[in-house]
Design a protein around this nucleic acid. Structure first.
Lengths: 180, 180
DNA sequence: TATGACATGTAACTAGTTACATGATTCA
DNA sequence: TGAATCATGTAACTAGTTACATGTCATA
């Protein structure tokens, strides 16, 4: 029996790139900066990965070079095929259930160290969460929110981050009281 | 200049295995079942990965074959070197800041589909979270909790999962009202 | 003219997934 | 004796990271 094709994978970087280009065309260099700014908390990507993915997306006909600029700059634009793939992924591909979490993995094994160290570790988790919460609040205040899609959906993601951080901090405060 | 050694990586699977063997010795087959049951929400691992990691850990002297059984069964036990590595990781290795989240990545790009579909997607996220919350509550009720480390720290992780799911559900309820 | 920002790409590696492959033991 | 479970392992792949490598353009 020959090899059966049965690969779909997540390939979410692919969709992150399509989503950014759907919003606005840009070069690899542009996308890299957009990833660093807007995406780093949700889907970090490295320069090397981005350029590789742009090449693959172009070969697959999901994006195309729309304009060229100085220094070999290639500005990509999403194609109809790319837009279709993005929408398919958004609506039809089942999201990941629960991602790996090495913070929680550590909590599982905290019995391997002294109770004081365990409390210290959890307290640090709480402080980290509090710092993130503060940073997100400052970010929210610094942005001029509008009625456009980027504002509406960007705010939903930001709000999720704030609630996540608050939940984390409250959990940590409670958890340290549970370790005798 | 020659290649500089600068790799540490996360290698959390390694530490998950050490943590499980610290709790109790076992074979690859045992660990696979323990990963499926207790760990699948925090750090899933495949059979192939587990056997590979056990081989590497044995070569590194962090675990050793403690007993052999029928069908080639090899029961591993953690060594002092393994215990030291586990404690080092627990306390000294900085945890990951924020993991990738493809659910939120989708939210970012929901402007690419119709508002009704966007609301539908977020509503489904909320229902999924609610189902997980319920499942965790049932799990909590079904376990006979004691005062041992596994109970104390296992309960902290479970409580985190419950709070996470509740936060998610509440966020989704709010988020659908934000999409016009 | 030298520095920094712009701009793209490749090589070598680690981590993780799916599928393949094999064999021993138990028990109905 | 046939099926389920126990038990281990390998091959080929995808995704992601770090480091290396190169070259252009603006401007102080």
């Amino acid at each position: 029996m020959s090899r059966v094709e049965c690969h779909d994978g997540d390939m979410s970087l692919r969709h992150a790139v399509l989503g950014m280009l759907e919003d606005e065309p840009g070069s690899g260099y542009d996308l890299l900066k957009r990833f660093e700014q807007a995406m780093s908390n949700v889907w970090p990507a490295t320069q090397s990965q981005l350029y590789g993915e742009l090449g693959k997306l172009e070969s697959a006909g999901m994006i195309h070079v729309h304009a060229e600029g100085p220094r070999g700059r290639k500005e990509y634009e999403i194609t109809d095929a790319g837009r279709a793939e993005l929408q398919h992924w958004l609506i039809e591909v089942p999201p990941t259930a629960a991602p790996r979490n090495d913070n929680l993995l550590r909590v599982y094994f905290l019995g391997a160290v002294a109770p004081g160290q365990a409390r210290g570790y959890i307290a640090t988790m709480g402080e980290t969460a509090q710092a993130r919460e503060k940073r997100l609040e400052e970010l929210e205040a610094s942005i001029d929110w509008g009625d456009d899609n980027a504002s509406v959906y960007g705010r939903l993601v930001l709000e999720w981050g704030k609630r996540y951080s608050a939940m984390y901090r409250e959990w940590a405060d409670w958890a340290v009281t549970q370790i005798k």
